[in-house]
Amino acid sequence: MVDDQAKLNATAHLYDSKTMRSSAPSRKAAAGKLKQNTEIPLDAIPEVHIPGWVESIFGGPVISKMKFLPPDRMVTSLQLSSSITLVLLCFLTFMITPVTGTAWFALSNMIGIGFIGGLFHFIIIGIGLIGGMYGVFQRDQKALLVSYIMLIIVTIRFAGSKVEFGLSFLPEGEIAQKLLLILYAIFLVMYMELSSGIIRFSMLDTSIRTGEVYVMGIQKITSRYHRSLLIAPSIAGFVALLTLFINRIIPAMVSIINPVSADRLRESVELTSVYGVALGTIVIFTIIGGAFAVNLPLRIQQFRDKQS
């Protein structure tokens, strides 16, 4: 009895790193069983905005935490140019992509109602157009994504035809067809860029107005973007031209040295086919890759720094 009492009063065990239990049951343990709500209190969470998947596709320098404020001048002009591009793109799509050769065309022919294929083809373009318009003016990122997907589905329809276009009055010549194709591809890229620009600049504008970000010289930044909108498609178009016309460029270069070989090259089936285009792509992108490999952009900048 005395020993037990001594044991109770002894404190030596406190220094032996033993776990002690309170006489009263642990409040934490009880709280764990009794709590109704496991919600973390608001002030325990730091205010960090984690962008969603869609937001991070469209997000620009800043991803705004709140809903967009009414569009400013920059956004409005982008909306306008984006909608014009979309209309032109859809018109081009309608012109150059025939329903023939598509899966839905085959299916509708199988069931014997041919016009359904055409109607379906028209509906896809329509969804691309309406979804795009909605996305552009409502600044709805999901609607824009749907529009992109629809327009890409129609693009993949090219797989079903060789060089056939949707409308008969379109040019038959190789150069005109290639130019029309490049124009179509540029419109597609521009539509994607302009519409995502709407979201990016809306986010930036909202962040500026809510004080999340401060922008010095917004005019210079927007004019840089406008300049890039002109330069980038021109460059892309030029590179595409070089690639697509490699079947003419290579024989022209070879003709300086050996006209006979040049004539043979002009008549080469491989060079005029898709493999010629692939060869052109390899040649052009090898040159570009080389420029990157020697870090040409940085060297140009260093040269400019030294010059000035």
């Binding site: 693009t155 035809s161 892309a236 792509t281 992108f285 570009i288």
Partner: peptide, 21 residues
């Protein structure tokens, strides 16, 4: 062996390359 698809791809690639540059 479809040239149209390759054309669209080349324009996209050129656009990307320019931005990267």
């Amino acid at each position: 062996r479809n040239q149209q698809l390759v054309t669209v791809a080349v324009v996209l690639l050129s656009f990307l390359t320019w931005a990267a540059f």
